[in-house]
Design a binder for these strands. Structure first.
Lengths: 129, 129, 129, 129
DNA sequence: GTGGTCTAGACCACG
DNA sequence: GTGGTCTAGACCACG
């Protein structure tokens, strides 16, 4: 569930951030639910508690979770649906680079679109749109 | 043309790589065409020659350009259409993360798809697909 | 009356201390009046009795209340008007930091002064000054 | 200049944040100016580089400085003058607590106002208002 | 038991 | 030389 693949050059704390966001979107982690403690999770993924703590703090800053010191970390109740213009532009920039790489990898527009739909569906996007 | 914005924490050499790939895909740089020399380009974008050199070497490794020692760097004739399974999986992984961020930024599937199509079209993808 | 909002990371026992001091200053708690027992108050605000007990002990240390073992806690008769030099310096330090944050938040001197006057008035400061 | 007094219970990294903000407001650090490197500053104040780094990253997040990895940290060019409603409410809350403490320390409204004006003036607030 | 802070020290990418 | 990441481990406040 919290299995982290040590991917190539992607910082562990970012992988933790993405994994938890993914679990929240899939509904595997529900609003109000308690996350594993910093120590528990660091033990599970064999990482340093500081690394996990850094991920949790960034997740709180992004409004995904809420940290109650001494109590633990909890999935934030209010769903994240703000439309941040700056963030959206950053995502478009990422998309631009992804398309460049995709074309060089021999992928067609249709293939990418299919993947996109699959990933969106797996993240429960259909419930939102 | 080779204008590099020092974007948020993206290494300059990666920006150079993407920019040259983009220009190749758009047809602004044609197969066989000579690229600016390392010194010329580093002067244009006010970057360290080592940085540009690193970008060129990576571009050659990826088969995008060819470096002929003493002659310069040239856009590779062979069009980029190989299907690298490992690379494709990496792209899918990128796409997964992009979708997670997009949902948290309040974007719908349709919006992302529209962007995808626009970016693909701008890179001359229609000629390939 | 003793409603405690679990504010952003401010320890509950400190919130209790401030709330009781505020009620004393406003006159809602009068000199000699009996405070709720530790158990009563911890029940009201849904907090650990240890937490409330810690707040009461700190309030006694500061001379705000008096704890008579077996009898309960009472608002201290002696009004709080001693001039503690060390404490005043600490307050000035707090003020310095507050002003820094206020300027960065776009507040003007006049706005802060107005707030200051309002807060002072609400705490019955006019009776003293 | 970067002297940090190890105050009672205030985290070192927060003290660094305040000190740098103060220096920026006073004009001792000018827009575009380079801050000491993480290692330099950590040596100056006898703290761990990680602690200074944490302060710098928070300062960047707040828009006070800009970190260019490999280059250093620089005072942000655009002045911070956004009016964040949430932040302003937090400041008012701080002010409320400060007034409570001030009254218990025997300070009058006039004394606090005078301090406020002095601190504001020292931070170059007159240039803004 | 929980998260927060901090140290000491290592290695790495970028330029 | 610079900041970024990470580990190992310590101590502390809160409840």
């Amino acid at each position: 569930m919290f299995q982290i693949d040590d991917m190539k050059n992607i910082p562990i704390y970012e992988q933790v951030i993405w994994k938890i966001k993914e679990l929240c979107l899939r509904g595997a982690l529900k609003p109000g639910e308690k996350l594993p403690s910093v120590r528990e999770l660091s033990g599970m993924i064999i990482a340093n508690p500081n690394t996990v703590s850094k991920a949790y703090q960034e997740l709180e800053r992004q409004g995904v979770i809420e940290i109650r010191p001494g109590k633990g970390a909890f999935v934030h109740a209010r769903p994240p649906d703000r439309a941040d213009a700056g963030k959206q532009e950053g995502i478009r920039e990422q998309l631009r680079r992804l398309v460049i790489e995709a074309i060089y990898a021999g992928l067609t527009l249709e293939e990418i679109k299919t993947w996109l739909e699959e990933e969106y569906a797996q993240l429960g996007g259909s419930q939102r749109a």
